[in-house]
Amino acid sequence: MVKEIERYGIPIVHMSTITTISESVGANRIVPTIAIPYPVGNPNLDKQEEEDLRKDMVNRALDCLATEITETTQF
């Protein structure tokens, strides 16, 4: 899906845990996430820690959309 959306010229960031797969299939902007059942979160942390982590990940994803790249890049 990532690639097909990017074909329209829209920058897209793939937030995924198994970044090896993202890279193999050809995503360009990748933000690594925590774990498969909770990519953008971590129930093992306490509430505030998890929120900080989640906010940081989302902001990183947004920032990478505004970053020019020339090859597949993990942010």
């Binding site: 990532v2 920058p11 897209i12 937030m15 993202s22 990519p39 994803a61 947004l62 505004a66």
Partner: peptide, 10 residues
Amino acid sequence: GVDGVILTST
């Protein structure tokens, strides 16, 4: 007219 996309996978 969407400018950017976040796509999450599990």
